[in-house]
Design a protein around this nucleic acid. Structure first.
Length: 195
DNA sequence: GGCCCGATTTGCT
DNA sequence: GCAAATCGGGCCA
């Protein structure tokens, strides 16, 4: 069953943990790629010095973060990769959850076409925020996609038991006291968690 | 208009 | 382990 609006209407730290183990679905021309979310990071809006929306910075890029929860905040990083985030909290509060790692469940053939790599390790297909966007053919055209009511990208509920690990977020050394917050969460021992 | 830098990945040493 | 790749966003002039 698809997650409804109320699922997303919570703070990003809680949403991040709740998203672990859920199934991310990408539909392209009627074809489905289904994957399990195994690694996430929370970005806590105006007060979080590690977030794009620190101090309520509202620009063309960050605009979607201020929208109603359940939209896709997508941005370009290093001029060549995309990152996917799920907007959290209430409208006007720019919090979101970065998806950093997913485990392919269905549509692995499509993933391999979207992301040709030399490595024969299957986890190298989707164990990173830029990698998984390439694998799912997610780019700037999907910015602002509605995960609650749209068809291109959405998330299904899924029950499963696992152990969650909390750690520091990756590559935000500039975030001062927010650098050491344990706002990265991942499923213990899952090989699709980034390194 | 110009400059600096990044919520990353890859390939080479 | 480390630096290159590569370019739009943000900010200041």
């Amino acid at each position: 069953m698809r997650l409804d609006l109320s699922f997303y209407q919570k703070d990003a730290i809680t949403l991040a943990q709740d998203l672990l183990g859920k199934l991310l679905v990408r539909e392209i021309n009627g074809q489905k790629i289904i994957s399990k979310i195994v690694e996430v990071e929370a970005y806590m809006g105006p007060e979080d010095k590690g977030a794009h929306t620190y101090n309520n910075r509202r620009t063309e890029r960050t605009e979607v973060m201020f929208w109603r929860a359940g939209h896709a905040y997508i941005y370009i990083i290093y001029g060549m990769y995309y990152c996917l985030n799920v907007v959290a909290a209430e409208e006007g509060i720019p919090q979101g959850v970065l998806i950093r790692g997913i485990e392919p469940i269905e549509g692995l053939d499509i993933i391999k076409i979207n992301r040709p790599i030399k490595s024969r390790k299957i986890q190298d297909l989707t164990n990173g925020p830029g990698k998984l966007c390439q694998a799912l053919d997610i780019d700037i055209n999907l910015r602002g996609t509605d995960l609650v009511y749209g068809q291109d990208l959405y998330i299904l509920d899924h029950q499963e038991t696992f152990e969650t690990i909390a750690s520091k977020r990756i590559n935000i050394d500039y975030a001062e006291e927010y650098r050491d917050k344990l706002w990265r969460f991942y499923i213990k021992n899952n090989i699709f968690v980034s390194k």
